[in-house]
Nucleic acid binder design. Structure first.
Length: 518
RNA sequence: GGCGAUGUAGCUCAGGCGGUUAGAGCGAGGGUUUCAUAAGCCCUAGGUCGUUGGUUCGAGUCCAACCAUCGCCA
């Protein structure tokens, strides 16, 4: 038994949950479910990031207290995940008192160590934006947004001296090639650490005169903590750092899941912060790509945000999460469209899986009195199905270690295919017409029930409701309670003859593509 | 402008330690079957492996340049 702490980013409360948030959260949920079924000790965390100027601005514009605004959006995230059946051991908010304490604790540690210093700097400040501009923000010397000249201004802030840790971090990454994965992102982080990348010490504060919606610095009440020294520490706080029992064990097995847009904070800032605080580094940083929608980037202005609740209402959440997990190669960008979703549902879930369940249980009802039949001796065809189950179980275990969920699902569906093919080869609907072949019919249906049990177990982390339904229909209702993956999915003979089965309705009815209006 | 990634059948992608006829799934076409959700099963894809040049007996597979897309940085 090993400890797995699985984290999603804490989502910034300036947007409602969309397909991007949903994907990361579904991956976390799937990993957590898989490891629970593997008998591991799992702690799964998500939450919301609520401080910073964007929230202060939006709240002010609405004439609202930022706290009230943040409460509303944070609750929206929490209730969305709950409604979708994505469960977590902790939903953390950066406004939670224990998070605030953890942030201040780390700040004190790092400050005492001498890794935080106070610096004065000059820059071009836009009064409209209320911030310093970079070259990128300007066109012809004017602020891009406000079309006015910024003024030179001096400000003092606290800086985290993270460049001190770049060498040590680089060595860590060289030493452990899969620490940041997939490899493409590891390379990017290495590039960031090179001297010519321009990456410097990190500004971690804002004067309260400019922003007061944040966590106060423990060593200077005139400043609040800015962005990453606040947000990243949620990962520690959620596990109980610094004073709740058990946090260290959980921290020992942390798997971070992020999208590629926040690679730098997680691949560079965060490990440097942990080293500065003399804390162990996370197990892996797992980085995935973006979802495009109808081949375009997700954006508010395009209105193509894809609400997970709407997808659930229209197609069922298992179908939606199956698509997300099956169609994205972890690490690469992928494209969502309802057409692609429907295609996937029909091909995999309706035709292959759903239909296999239908035909198996229908024949069990017709030819075996609706109970799992007593088999005769197994022949080579039966051995083939058993071997397919074994292969699927093992490949799923391998793929899950690498976070290649699309490959894991491919492997499971090879078992589904093998079972469909087996059924055709045995053709029990023909054998049933010949009384002397009754034993063969029983053996065949018994084997299919066995296969469905394996399929249900393996599928459970990915499409939990569907998997539970399949197991229930083949009389393996209790299988999940005592299951241990992957071994249990390849254990043959676990379905007891005589157990009642249930035919049920179509698991995934085929969907006809609608012609126009949406 | 610098660094990096990607570019393989209509679509999504495998292969990429150089070597027999370049693979899978989906979609499409044909066949077969009827237990099943007009599902399953069987057969069929002849794709200059982005372009051009090089290394080699031999290159999607190595090297260079270029083009396209994307990301990071400036």
């Amino acid at each position: 038994m090993s400890a797995w702490s699985i984290t999603t980013p804490i989502y910034y409360v300036n947007a409602e949950p969309h397909i991007g948030h949903t994907y990361t959260t579904v991956v976390a949920d799937t990993l957590a479910r898989y490891h629970r079924l593997a008998g591991d000790d799992v702690f799964c965390v998500t939450g919301t990031d609520e401080h910073g100027d964007k929230i202060a601005e939006v709240a002010a514009a609405a004439g609202e207290d930022p706290r009230v605004f943040a409460d509303r959006i944070s609750n929206l995230f929490r209730s969305t995940w709950q409604e979708l059946g994505l469960s977590f051991d902790r939903f953390i908010r950066t406004t939670d008192p224990d998070h605030v304490r953890a942030v201040q604790h780390v700040l004190e540690l790092v400050h005492a160590k001498g890794d935080i210093d106070f610096r004065e700097y000059r820059g071009l400040y836009c009064v409209g934006c209320e911030r310093f501009l970079t070259e990128r923000d300007m066109v012809d010397g004017l602020c891009r947004d406000h079309e006015r000249a910024p003024e030179e201004r001096t400000e003092s802030n606290y800086f985290f001296r993270m460049t001190r840790y770049f060498d040590a971090l680089g060595e860590k990454i060289e030493r452990e090639p899969d620490w940041i994965r997939p490899a493409r992102y590891r390379n990017e982080v290495l590039a960031m650490l090179r001297e010519d990348s321009g990456l410097e010490d990190l500004c971690i504060s804002r004067p309260k005169t400019r922003l007061d919606w944040g966590i106060e610095l423990p060593f200077d009440p005139d400043y609040v903590c800015y962005v990453w020294f606040d947000a990243l520490i949620n990962y520690l706080a959620a596990l109980g750092y610094p004073d709740q029992p058990g946090w260290e064990a959980r921290w020992g097995g942390v798997e971070h899941l992020i999208a590629k847009d926040i690679l730098k904070p997680h691949g560079v800032f965060w490990p440097c912060m942990l080293m500065a605080a003399d804390l162990p580094l996370y197990q892996h940083l797992n980085v995935h790509g973006y979802w495009n929608v109808d081949d375009r980037k997700i954006s508010k202005s395009l209105g193509n945000m894809v609400s997970p609740l709407k997808m659930r209402d229209k197609y069922g959440f298992d179908a939606f999460r199956y698509f997300l997990l099956r169609d994205m190669s972890f690490g690469l960008d992928s494209s969502f469209s309802e057409e692609a979703l429907v295609t996937r549902i029909n091909a995999d879930l309706a035709n292959n899986l759903g239909n296999l369940v239908s035909r198996t249980l229908n024949m069990t009802a017709r030819f075996a009195d609706g109970v799992v039949p007593e088999p005769d001796a197994a022949g080579p065809l039966e051995a083939g199905v058993e071997a397919a189950a074994r292969e699927a179980a093992r490949e799923v275990a391998t793929r899950m270690r690498e976070l290649e969920m699309h490959r894991a699902l491919e492997a499971i569906f090879r078992l589904v295919d093998a079972t469909n093919k087996y059924l055709d080869e045995r053709a029990p609907w023909k054998a049933a017409k010949e009384p002397e072949r009754a034993g063969e019919v029983r053996t065949t249906l018994h084997t299919c029930c066995q296969a469905l049990r394996s399929i249900g177990l393996l599928l459970s982390p990915f499409v939990p409701d569907t998997a539970a339904e399949i197991l229930d229909r083949v009389g393996a209702t209790d299988a999940l309670a005592s299951a241990r993956l992957p071994d249990d999915a390849e254990r043959w003979g676990a379905v007891s003859p005589g157990t009642p089965t249930r035919k049920g309705d179509a698991l995934f009815p085929r969907i006809e593509l609608e012609t126009g209006d949406a």
